[in-house]
Design a protein around this nucleic acid. Sequence first.
DNA 1: CTGTTAGCGCTTTCAG
DNA 2: CTGAAAGCGCTAACAG
Lengths: 336, 336
Amino acid sequence: MITIYDIARVAEVSAMTVSRVINNTGRVSDKTRRRVRQVMEELHYVPNSNARSLVLQKTNILSLLITDITNPFYTTLARGAEDTAKRLGYRLLLGNSDEDYAKEKDYVDMILSTRVDGVLFAPAGDGSFSHLQQLEQHRIPFVLLDRDVPGIQADRIIGESREGARRLVEHLLELGHRRIALLGGSQDVSTARERHAGYREALKLNDVAYDEALVLHLNYRDGLNPSALDHLLGQEKPPTAIFAANNFIALGIIQSLRARGLQVPDDLSVVCFDDLGFASVLNPFLTVAAQPAYQFGVLGMERLISLIENDDSNGPRTIILPSELIVRSSSRKLEP
Amino acid sequence: MITIYDIARVAEVSAMTVSRVINNTGRVSDKTRRRVRQVMEELHYVPNSNARSLVLQKTNILSLLITDITNPFYTTLARGAEDTAKRLGYRLLLGNSDEDYAKEKDYVDMILSTRVDGVLFAPAGDGSFSHLQQLEQHRIPFVLLDRDVPGIQADRIIGESREGARRLVEHLLELGHRRIALLGGSQDVSTARERHAGYREALKLNDVAYDEALVLHLNYRDGLNPSALDHLLGQEKPPTAIFAANNFIALGIIQSLRARGLQVPDDLSVVCFDDLGFASVLNPFLTVAAQPAYQFGVLGMERLISLIENDDSNGPRTIILPSELIVRSSSRKLEP
DNA sequence: CTGTTAGCGCTTTCAG
DNA sequence: CTGAAAGCGCTAACAG
């Protein structure tokens, strides 16, 4: 591996001068600068950023931690984050926690030992608290993405989960539905709680009683098991519509319904939070509250970098991104 | 930031002993080991992997370079790569070239300066040659993913593009189609060439003349512009079916067709290479040659790591992954 | 404008 | 079983 000393020797200058040329820092005569540059090219020199990081105490690496690399919401977000990191001159270390606290913990340890300059952190849930504390302890700047974690003071980019949920449910109410099931996420996750709250709010505003029998708390990745579905549909007054707290839960329930011969929206209407990316282009089917996933990534990354570079810390800032109600064909008017 | 010297001081040993405890190397008495461990915990010590990398000349970082982070083929692949890297104890630096040689070059420079231990490289095309040469020059092990680059000798994981294409076209031929258009990828990309070859092969085997007027070379990301489509459909004998060289080209053409009031498969059949992930679950519509994307990531990563750890270089090895023909409803029998 | 010295945090010798 | 010295590749601080 060739080092600045190698080019220093060949170019007949000191290593320091080479360093100056590389970083465009300090004054170097045009003549030596040119000579050094040429030798660097000839020897195919590439700076060693580990050595650089070690002395500068700055790695120029940022980490993006997401909970489900399969979900178009997060991949779109990742794209926004990646584009922005690249644009602003940072490298990106990717982590995928699979909604699993143990995996998340592993990544936090990796992140710590890598001495990344900052973390874009989509937490698995409230249990991420201790992981975020670790980051705080080590003074690693981070921005929370998509989900809030009680007890953590930090910059964050979050969606209007409650309002979005309310609008989705109100849409169903307007279509005449009164028995609306909520397939919610884990109560451990802030967005799931908010969407639950939005659901209740919509019912209340429209004088529809809240019925526990219509509410299930699931996992954003796995969805629903068959017997729970049996139970839900086997009630005296079964639901005529379903609000799924995210896209994957919706996909799961639609499949399960089909598997037992029920059609959407003919037999049940289904709406959900988060769009499906290009899948919705191919087949505009699901009625959704679409979040600006790409913007989550861009804004989060910009905020993180400004936090790092400008020590921009006049109190943590929260950016709230609205969602858009997109009515498609998975929801329909309830026949009397 | 706390270092081994800090814990050495508190534990009243030398830094070297601390290092030995961290790495479980050399002999250290149980008593000191325990004491050191305890101090590490108390002080929340986390090793600095930059310092470590610098002396060890090994970073434990691998890079995954893909060409389109939006495409489910690559995100699924990324998931396989990420899972495997984590399982085998490596960190993953992600890069997305957007099928753009300039961006790819930037990432290669980043990779070089990061001194990653290896690269999983899905090249943008034949023009990636010089980038791969750079890696060779710096003795960075890499595995080629999905696409081949003429002139580069390396391990690679590629799909059976030609056979997959042939089967898709034969499927259309069996349905009675004779005027089959190819919306191919750039001739700069090995998979596009192979799929083109498979298309010709299928026609030839079935005594159908190859007609240049039915063949377009596009970009895997962007697809087709409207005037080209006009031209294609405005021919004397327009196509009755379309073979799209990848999923995104297929999505684009289906949208364009819809935009001018044509229905798939009623007016034209459409088939393509690569599946659409969960989109196909929601709506099993497109007839495709599905590639085992996750396996691409897993096998590529395993191969790369074995290359690094076992210097497993009795000649580069090529792993060829088959694709599966999945017939769905976007292709149908041609009415006489 | 250019060079020397010291040190970032760690591990590899080599001694004890 | 434990420690001292040297160096990985680079840059900040200070001289000249």
